[in-house]
Amino acid sequence: MASRHIGIVLLACAATLVPAGAALAQAPAKPAQIVVNDSGGATQAANRKTFYTEFEKRHGIKIVNTSPVDLGKLRAMVQSGNVEWTVTEIAGPDALLAERSGLLEPLDLSVIDLSRFPAHLQKRKYVFPKSVYSTVMGYRSDIFKSGGPVTWADFWNVTKFPGPRTMQNSPIEQLEFALLADGVPMDKLYPLDVDRAFRKLDQIKKHVAVWWTTGAQSAQLLIDKEAVIGTAWNGRYYNLIKEGAPVTMEWNQGAIKESAFGIPKGAKEAYWGQRVLGAMTDARTQAAYADIIGYPGLNLDATQYTDPKIVPYLPTSPVNLPKQFWVNLEWWADNGAAVHERWARWILQK
């Protein structure tokens, strides 16, 4: 009894808030704010300046941000029915795991316009491909004055390119890089030959001074000369280069993948969540975002709004794209647990 009573009162209140005859007559009431969870840091700042502002301008709803990206938390929210996020970023193969575990609301493609996206992405049901980033190698240009490593074989070649290295503390991509260094062609990587990859990794292990954990760390290591050759997400190197650091990034054999967003299953403001993703498809906003951080969106029209000076620093540029390979997230979603465990074991071996 009591709860129905309260329900009626709430509806009455909501009704008074919506102006009669407004264009949004069929839309649910506007909340004061919604929560978008992303990976924080530089990415969040760039999102804030572009997509979040765009959404707020369009709909007059404030976006509140949380971080970090956390699949475990997403699952806990969905399972407990207490979904705090309206939209969340989802990292790498986690997006597939989330989709398979039924943790996401289906995308409303009438709101999220994918018609100008590459054809293979237009069929997306749950995971929104927001932007693209690539893990590439970089090096100190002041140390390798006459040219640095260009291939992963070069990266592995410690006599020709001496000095401490840094790589990410994760098997994802490190296995791919090892196989490329061992001579596997880019289009024959998957399914990964895990044993072969680890054998190759054994060769580089003692030259890796740091297995980095955070994006900020990967860039800082080159600045501090803790490592003279490393891997990082292209945006991190882009920022260093923008600031004039003596760092060169090499697109060749880079690992490209999408940065995904989704709406948690049962999100209270899912209606507005669809519209947040809708704002993320906007070509001009995508171009502005890439300008700031070097991660381009996937709307093909975005390139025409992008500053030509920064195009060489984008993984999707016509010159860069063919040099890289797409990380097969499906393979990682299938095999990740076992390979991660093996990776942890391998790291511990002296």
């Binding site: 956390d70 699949l71 938390k73 990740g336 942890a344």
Partner: peptide, 9 residues
């Protein structure tokens, strides 16, 4: 953390 966050185990 890895078990919870990455593998949902």
């Amino acid at each position: 953390e890895q078990q919870i966050r990455t593998f949902l185990n």
